[in-house]
Simulated scan of single mutants.
Amino acid sequence: MSQNINIYLPDDTLAEIDRLAPQGDRSRFIIEAVKFYIHESNKRAMRDLLKEGAIVRAERDLALAQEWFGLDEV
């Protein structure tokens, strides 16, 4: 299912799209560009969440690692 929408783009942006997209295929180009942007945004958000979680748990993880290192020495 698709919907027809109206968007406004700066002239220079439209010129770039026309330069890069195959003749008469603006819609396909914009669809792919939006999908790529969403995918990259989701990856960036996931990376940020993982980083935040690692920072929050760093002290606990270090304590656990130190406990296990002690077992190796026995």
Rank of each mutant, 00 (worst) to 15 (best):
D12W: 11
G53N: 14
I17S: 04
T13W: 08
R60T: 14
I5Q: 11
M1L: 12
E52V: 07
I5G: 04
D12G: 00
D25H: 12
I17E: 10
R44W: 01
L9V: 13
Y8A: 09
R19P: 02
P22L: 02
R47S: 12
E40G: 04
G24E: 00
F69H: 11
V56W: 09
Q3G: 04
A45K: 09
D18M: 02
I31L: 06
K51I: 05
L50C: 09
A33P: 04
Y8Q: 08
R19C: 02
R57A: 08
A21C: 04
P10H: 14
S2W: 07
E59P: 03
V74Y: 04
H39L: 08
F69G: 04
V56N: 09
L71P: 01
Q66Y: 03
A58F: 12
E16R: 15
L9A: 09
G24P: 10
I30T: 06
R60H: 05
E73A: 13
L50P: 02
A21S: 06
R28I: 01
G24Y: 02
M46G: 06
E16H: 07
R44E: 05
L64H: 04
P22D: 06
F29W: 05
I5D: 06
E32N: 07
Q23M: 11
D12M: 08
I7Q: 04
G70Y: 08
V74F: 07
V74E: 12
N4C: 08
E59F: 07
D12L: 10
L62T: 12
E59W: 06
V34I: 11
A45W: 07
F29D: 04
A21W: 00
F69A: 15
R26G: 00
N4V: 09
W68E: 15
E40Q: 14
E67F: 02
S2K: 15
A21M: 01
A63C: 05
F29E: 03
Y37N: 10
M46L: 15
E73I: 14
Y37D: 14
F36N: 08
D11R: 00
P22R: 07
E73W: 02
A54M: 14
M46S: 14
A65T: 08
K43W: 11
N42Y: 03
L9C: 07
I17H: 03
R26V: 00
L20S: 11
G70Q: 12
E52P: 01
L71Q: 09
R26L: 01
E32T: 00
M1Y: 09
A63I: 08
E40T: 10
E67H: 07
D11L: 05
N4T: 13
I38Q: 12
Q3K: 15
E16L: 15
E59C: 05
S27M: 02
N6E: 09
R47H: 10
R47L: 10
K51G: 05
N42L: 10
L50E: 14
Q66V: 11
T13N: 06
I5P: 03
Y8F: 06
A63H: 09
R28V: 01
R26A: 00
T13S: 09
R57K: 13
E67I: 07
M1R: 03
E73K: 13
Q23W: 05
R26I: 02
D12R: 07
N4F: 04
P10V: 13
I17M: 03
G70V: 12
I38F: 14
